[in-house]
Lab assay of single mutants.
Amino acid sequence: LTVQLGNLEWHFDNPEQALKMAEELAKRYQLKVEIDNGTLKFK
């Protein structure tokens, strides 16, 4: 699973870790998370 923020990307083997990080980033920057083809992206 990949977490993508702008041109930064983090790759996780563990989806739970990816979701946890995505939630933290979304909270911190007040963004919405969307999943696009196995990639978590922020809007």
Rank of each mutant, 00 (worst) to 15 (best):
L1Q: 04
L1N: 05
L1M: 13
L1G: 04
L1K: 03
L1F: 14
T2S: 08
T2G: 04
T2K: 12
T2W: 09
V3K: 01
V3G: 02
V3F: 05
Q4M: 13
Q4I: 15
Q4K: 12
Q4V: 14
Q4F: 07
Q4A: 08
Q4P: 03
Q4G: 04
Q4T: 10
L5A: 03
L5Q: 02
L5V: 06
L5R: 00
L5I: 09
L5C: 06
L5P: 01
G6L: 06
G6N: 06
G6D: 05
G6F: 06
G6A: 06
N7E: 11
N7V: 10
N7L: 11
N7F: 11
N7I: 09
L8T: 10
L8K: 15
L8H: 14
L8M: 15
L8Y: 14
L8W: 15
L8G: 05
E9H: 13
E9G: 03
E9T: 15
E9R: 13
E9P: 03
W10E: 01
W10F: 08
W10Y: 05
W10K: 02
W10R: 02
W10V: 06
W10T: 01
W10P: 00
W10N: 00
H11R: 08
H11I: 07
H11F: 12
H11L: 05
H11M: 05
H11K: 08
H11P: 02
H11N: 05
H11S: 06
F12V: 04
F12T: 02
F12K: 01
F12M: 04
F12E: 01
D13N: 12
D13W: 08
D13R: 08
D13F: 07
D13P: 09
D13M: 07
D13A: 11
D13C: 05
D13H: 09
N14F: 07
N14H: 10
N14A: 07
N14I: 09
N14T: 13
P15M: 14
P15D: 08
P15E: 09
P15Y: 14
P15A: 12
P15F: 15
E16Y: 11
E16S: 09
E16L: 13
E16K: 11
E16A: 13
E16P: 03
E16T: 10
Q17A: 14
Q17K: 11
Q17N: 10
Q17D: 15
Q17W: 09
Q17F: 10
Q17V: 12
A18S: 02
A18P: 01
A18K: 00
A18W: 05
A18M: 05
A18V: 04
L19H: 10
L19K: 07
L19N: 04
L19Q: 06
K20F: 07
K20H: 11
K20Q: 12
K20P: 01
K20W: 09
K20V: 09
M21Q: 04
M21G: 01
M21T: 05
M21W: 15
A22I: 06
A22D: 00
A22C: 03
A22N: 00
A22G: 04
A22V: 06
E23I: 12
E23P: 00
E23A: 11
E23N: 13
E23H: 11
E23K: 11
E23W: 10
E23R: 10
E23Q: 12
E23Y: 14
E23T: 11
E23V: 10
E24G: 10
E24F: 15
E24S: 13
E24C: 11
E24Y: 15
E24R: 14
E24T: 12
E24A: 14
L25V: 06
L25Y: 10
L25C: 05
L25R: 00
L25G: 00
L25I: 15
A26C: 06
A26T: 03
A26H: 03
A26L: 06
A26G: 05
K27R: 13
K27L: 12
K27S: 11
K27H: 11
K27Y: 09
K27Q: 13
K27D: 11
R28A: 07
R28V: 06
R28C: 05
R28W: 06
R28H: 08
Y29T: 03
Y29L: 10
Y29Q: 02
Q30I: 04
Q30C: 09
Q30H: 15
Q30P: 03
Q30D: 13
Q30F: 10
Q30V: 04
L31Q: 01
L31H: 02
L31C: 05
L31Y: 06
L31A: 03
K32C: 05
K32R: 11
K32D: 06
K32F: 10
K32P: 03
K32M: 12
K32S: 13
V33I: 15
V33K: 00
V33H: 03
V33G: 02
V33T: 04
V33L: 13
V33E: 01
V33R: 00
E34N: 05
E34T: 12
E34M: 12
E34V: 15
E34S: 07
E34W: 15
E34K: 04
E34I: 15
E34C: 08
I35W: 14
I35T: 05
I35R: 09
I35Q: 08
I35D: 04
I35C: 08
I35K: 06
I35N: 11
I35M: 14
D36R: 08
D36C: 07
D36M: 12
D36P: 00
D36F: 12
D36A: 12
N37A: 09
N37F: 04
N37G: 14
N37K: 08
N37W: 04
N37Q: 10
N37I: 03
G38E: 06
G38S: 06
G38A: 07
G38T: 07
G38I: 04
T39G: 03
T39S: 06
T39D: 03
T39C: 04
T39L: 10
L40R: 00
L40K: 00
L40A: 03
K41N: 04
K41M: 08
K41L: 08
K41S: 09
K41T: 14
K41H: 09
K41C: 08
F42L: 15
F42S: 00
F42T: 02
F42E: 01
F42R: 00
F42A: 01
K43H: 13
K43Y: 15
K43M: 12
K43A: 12
K43W: 12
K43T: 14
